[in-house]
Nucleic acid binder design. Structure first.
Lengths: 209, 209
DNA sequence: GTCTATAGTTAGATAGAC
DNA sequence: GTCTATCTAACTATAGAC
């Protein structure tokens, strides 16, 4: 052991990033304090500025990371070779897996894109995202024309799928109180949604014969 | 004309309230500034404190008003005498009507209940709300037992209905960019949702014969 | 009731020692 | 690289004139 440090576990730069992630997702940009980030990182406030210059820049790092976490799910829709129903199931499964591991990201992203929409779109939306979306829309339209799914506006279908995946995470405090259930019980409900949401969507759009 | 004022339109107290509603729903509690509220009300900052003592108290007024706007829809579910399907249609219709007229309230409420959950539940949730929710849950359970709707956990059904109603309003900036549509076009999509959401839900849960 | 002026506090950011 | 001390600006809130 040639290391005389008092167990900093990892370098300061990374600790700041970890602390900032927690504080920003908890409090939002306006509610977060550089002091609180420094405290959670176990270092001095000046050091936060040393590594990341400004609150805005540090926030950008965190937001970029958070937003990009949500993107792979969309790409996934294309992967599957199967029928439209299987692709939707795959998307829901993948998307909910990611959100379950990062339950604070959805509200965090929703808020930032309201706070400064221009920055959000110019800086964080990858150029190919719109193309991918168009592909998904085309896939839905195609499936409807071939009679594989019911006749629904593909834009509404996309909104509905995202809504069913995301909503319980952004509305958790209210839902949990309204339904009067405990923390572990709500976790169980969330875990059930992979199955429930897929089933719900497929029931809604698959042609009944 | 015995009034020598320069068209204040209405008393200062009300103008402050109107300005505060706009600023708080736009920026949230942490992002809002008393100065900005005073400016939008066209009066001095000191006057805001004269009428509402503190930022917290002013915010409470606004939040109470916003949250109570969303409540009548839930009560409405009981009104209908019809079948479960009609009651759901009535709820969606009523709920979306309210949100369409107050598109900023959902995200505003979601954020505040994350910011200080304790205050939210102790101060703003009416005591009878949980009872009403239990009634709705029982209604769903009953309908499922009688075979009127598919076998779905009533809690998930309630989450799904709320999700489909609320989500496009809280995610509007992202959805609009992702789908690459203009403001009036998105308004049209929102207006369509009364029909679309009802149909989607009923397709998902009504027993096919 | 409405204003100006300012108190009191806290935030983000920097200077400079080590 | 990490700290203490401090600057500057912005915020909420109040005092006091009118």
């Amino acid at each position: 052991m040639d290391n005389s440090e008092t167990v900093p576990e990892i370098n300061a730069e990374q600790r700041i990033l970890d602390a900032a992630r927690r504080v920003f997702t908890r409090k939002g940009f306006d509610g977060a304090r550089m002091q609180e980030i420094a405290d959670e990182a176990g270092i001095n406030k000046a050091l936060v500025h040393y590594y990341y210059r400004s609150k805005e820049k540090l926030f950008s790092e965190i937001f970029r990371e958070a937003f990009s976490t949500m993107l792979p799910a969309i790409a996934h829709v294309f992967m599957g070779q199967g029928a439209i129903g299987q692709k939707i199931e795959l998307f829901v499964e993948k998307y909910l897996s990611i959100v379950l591991q990062n339950p604070f990201i959805p509200l965090f992203v929703l808020n930032e894109m309201h706070r400064s929409p221009e920055t959000f779109f110019n800086e964080f939306i990858p150029p190919d995202l719109k193309i991918r979306i168009k592909g998904v829309i085309a896939m839905f339209t195609n499936a409807a024309q071939k009679g594989e799914i019911a006749d629904i506006d593909p834009r509404h279908l996309m909104i509905n799928i995202m809504a069913l995946c995301v909503f319980p995470f952004v509305a958790r405090p209210m839902l949990q109180r309204m339904l009067d259930i405990s923390d572990p019980e709500f976790e169980k409900v969330l875990a059930e949604r992979k199955q429930v949401v897929s089933q719900f969507i497929l029931n809604a759009i698959m042609i009944k014969n």
